[in-house]
Design a protein around this nucleic acid. Structure first.
Ligand SMILES: [Mn+2]
Ligand SMILES: [Mn+2]
Ligand SMILES: [Zn+2]
Ligand SMILES: [Zn+2]
Lengths: 146, 146
DNA sequence: TTATTTATTTATAATCATTATATATTTAGA
DNA sequence: TCTAAATATATAATGATTATAAATAAATAA
């Protein structure tokens, strides 16, 4: 939802500049787990004046507002973000660096329990299981044992 | 369990040198979520020749073996590790950078489901909820609104 | 509208955790 | 002991992120 993201910027007292809105639109439109550099590269053609700093700054605000989750690195040297804050597990492949969502009712219930019982003021979450995806397991087997 | 950690090194075909064992002992003894720098600082007095590179290298092996989990950063610029690989949620405070464990039966069941149904060859996990801990919420309230 | 202030963006430089490399050291085995 | 392989160290290189200062854009007032 773009609305949620844009709302977060407004609530944080920030102006809705075109680049900030563009970043929100990109995040809302993506079913992906992009890095700052990916967002920058995707928007640069349409917003030639965009700087990487603005991407980082905007992401920072969204993360602190809990509108976007930070998943962290997954073997590549880049922090991945998740615009989908619904409780779910992210399966990350250490080889091809793909991330796919894995939903389970457990996650939803656990989220509730944590927010109720932990005493923490929860901002966001980072639910990642990392390993080797089915496709990369295949290529592992077919490749020579070097 | 030191045994598990040391076993991982052996299985990876590594010799059990004193520094490697020391790192394993430190990890096994800690109920904490240390960074590479913290491990280095803790062991340096007893192992004056220890280098940070060895800490990073050993951690890398342990992580790839699934004997230690990488939680990632929590507001400070340092990657935190978790020697406790039992399924649990890590509650991280973005202010004081403390991490506490939060256990729930949901986590255990979910772990099983993921390993069974995802098709991924799971190496490790990173189950973090980040926010503000109770103590830091207090100090927030008592401090002037700047 | 025009001037004035404030917020934002950009471009650039600085930071610093992590990784890579080359040399020194240790270990295992003959 | 001697030799070769593995390991550790010290150091340098990398590169994502952060900080800074100048430029631009937006809001407000006159
Ligand atoms: Mn996701
Ligand atoms: Mn833990
Ligand atoms: Zn893969
Ligand atoms: Zn705290």
């Amino acid at each position: 939802m773009v609305d949620t993201l844009i709302n977060s910027l407004t609530k944080a007292g920030m102006r809705l500049t075109s680049t900030r809105v563009a970043i929100c639109n990109y995040l809302a439109g993506s079913q992906d787990h992009p890095t700052a550099a990916q967002i920058y590269a995707a928007l640069k053609p349409d917003y030639p004046s965009l700087s990487l700093a603005t991407v980082y700054n905007t992401l920072d605000v969204l993360v602190n507002a809990g509108a976007v989750n930070v998943l962290g690195q997954i073997g590549d040297g880049n922090v991945h973000f998740d615009p989908d804050t619904h409780p779910h597990i992210n399966l990350a492949c250490l080889k091809c660096h793909e991330i796919v969502d894995f939903t389970s009712q457990h996650t939803v219930e656990m989220e509730e329990i944590i927010r109720k019982e932990s005493g923490y003021q929860i901002v966001g979450s980072r639910m990642v299981h990392y390993g080797i995806c089915p496709a990369c397991q295949e290529s592992q087997n077919s490749e020579p044992t070097a």
